[in-house]
Design a protein around this nucleic acid. Structure first.
Lengths: 138, 138
DNA sequence: GACGTTGTGCGACACTTGTCTTAGGATACA
DNA sequence: TGTATCCTAAGACAAGTGTCGCACAACGTC
């Protein structure tokens, strides 16, 4: 009846929002994060941001430097890591575990600008080559 | 202080799990869904599944045929719709609104099998062509 | 050193999500 | 028809999330 304890800490939307702000600026105080959040249209109060940062710190996703009056928070997990997890989860749950399906969905639904298209193509070529020489891609 | 009412109904993980089962089989009773869920390793009880289906119905995401003893549930939103939303959200929140970045992430991180690679390539070519003739991609 | 300003600490509260229990109606069958 | 089954209805309840309020400490300044 209670919910099973997750092995990994969760990362709810609002916490992700503040994390994104920290990733962007490298670090920030409560007030600074609040400022950016407001500009981004989030209707948060000071206390809300403080709570979110607290919770993130409790989960070890940010660390704080408390030597100054206003604590300075800094992310301790990187965006890439979070992206990886989210993408994997998405692929698992909605693309039958087939990243290729997601790629195709993306290409069908959104048009890449030529520059990106080129990059994608060369990436594709690179991988094909690696596959031939049986070296696993990075 | 209360949370603002979301314009769209949410779709929590566990509800998505039962939805996926329904997408898979087209329809199902509580017991059938439970059965599949168990096989997939979910430790749910009968009542849990019933609750989840109730909630989904309340949100209009499934409909039920109540003419038989055991209600028959059927999804009323399709997987593609949910995929679209999730992908957009992911791109917004973690890929700066740039689908291309996600595509590249996927290609770098996972190797497509040759068949898919081929498909991707031709998709890419198709889109390039369409762009040239200034027709918006689908 | 009193006062306004800015910070943190701590708690609070409603709504959501994950999970079940239990009562009571229908069905099936000995 | 009595009894075991299976179903749905209605709650219940804990933990997670979204959002603060407020008391109290530090600081800056006249």
């Amino acid at each position: 009846m209670p919910r099973r304890t997750p092995s990994e800490p969760s990362l709810p939307e609002s916490e992700l929002d503040v994390l994104r702000i920290l990733w962007d600026r490298g670090q920030g105080t409560v007030r600074e994060v609040l400022q950016v959040a407001k500009e981004a249209g989030l209707p948060w109060s000071y206390a809300t941001v403080a709570t979110l940062l607290d919770r993130l710190e409790a989960k070890g996703m940010v660390a704080s430097d408390r030597s100054e009056l206003a604590f300075l928070y800094r992310p301790t997990i990187d965006a890439q890591e979070v992206r990886r997890k989210r993408v994997n989860h998405l692929v698992e749950k909605l693309y039958e575990g087939e990243p290729g399906l997601l790629v195709m969905h993306l290409l069908k639904t959104h048009s890449l600008d030529p520059e990106q298209a080129k990059q994608v193509r060369s990436l594709l070529d690179g991988l094909a080559a690696e596959t031939k020489t049986s070296r696993p891609p990075r």
